[in-house]
Design a protein around this nucleic acid. Sequence first.
DNA 1: ATGTTAATGTGTCAAATGACACAGCTTTTT
DNA 2: AAAAAGCTGTGTCATTTGACACATTAACAT
Lengths: 191, 191
Amino acid sequence: MQMLRDYFKGFGDISSENMDYLLSHCKSREVPKGTELIKPKQEVDSIYFLEVGFLHYYTYNDFGERVTLKVVEPNYCWTIMDSFVNEVPSSEYCVALSPVRLCELKREKYQAIKYKNQELGNFIQSIVEQILSAKVIEANKKSKMSIEQRYLDLVENHTKMVQEVPVQILASLIGTSRETLHRIRRKLAAA
Amino acid sequence: MQMLRDYFKGFGDISSENMDYLLSHCKSREVPKGTELIKPKQEVDSIYFLEVGFLHYYTYNDFGERVTLKVVEPNYCWTIMDSFVNEVPSSEYCVALSPVRLCELKREKYQAIKYKNQELGNFIQSIVEQILSAKVIEANKKSKMSIEQRYLDLVENHTKMVQEVPVQILASLIGTSRETLHRIRRKLAAA
DNA sequence: ATGTTAATGTGTCAAATGACACAGCTTTTT
DNA sequence: AAAAAGCTGTGTCATTTGACACATTAACAT
């Protein structure tokens, strides 16, 4: 749980009682490689915090191609937002790409934390605001980068992901085919 | 203000006193076409709600090309998240594409509302959660759609925007060149 | 009203991309 | 251990795209 504790700390100060209360509602869990954590039609009622390994969050487009929406890496908090917030079934998949350890926070627990006391309410509010801000920054950054720049960004800022996740998944993540990503890698290796 | 009132109502129920309190902190404002609402280096300390007209939110990439990040349309709540949340200068532009009427909510007012009472605090929290959810859904949708599908989506769900906003801006918004968008339009017109 | 700037439509051409096809490896399954 | 399944590297080729150039039209400023 130390990793999650540090993650929370990054969002601001909070009393140690409240921090312990928060952490006591999160349950650690091990998931073997290949596990389908989430399938379409399933209701997602948890937020996940990844400690070890990688998750593949993906869906299919109208042409039947698999599209990677996100590769979740350690020290990242993730859920299927639509399903979690609006209490509707997921239409997407999430599979463990490697042996994974994660912390799970159930919706009821999340709600309980929000209303436990003022400090916790404000703390959660602040986290959600900061995550929203990060999402918008990420989307804007993606919009202005070329495919090659997106790959370089992965290499630089997500080195372990590039090493451990299949190239086809990375290609889809940055919005191209595995062949084109391969050409980019070949070009970069030559330089 | 009626438009903003209805917008808030869409996020859930709230007492009429609190609704009035909320609205009393928002200031309506008219902005002529071409106004640079926001420039780089400027600190953005407001949230904007658009009532009439269109805003062009854009930046420049490393190749010096202008990239449209968002076309803000009526009944939409918008700000430069990074600047607003983290209190840093903007690195992006926002210009009125047409005569605009908007409501402005300053950061201090926003903070005051959050802490005014429990119901307002929860209400704001719920809005931020729902906006976060919408952002993620939007980004995922974009990831799985082709350029042509994105354009068709604009035609279907943002008809007025397609009519009033220059094609080059729309092209950039959906992630292509104006020539390619033109080809798509020609093809669709033929069918 | 008139010159100026911005936006649009269109054609050509070179470059980038995706679709296939297949061989070589690695990992998983039986 | 053998078979199957999945991932990777690579070449060819047709298609798509972006870059450029330029004519036409619309919007704006003086």
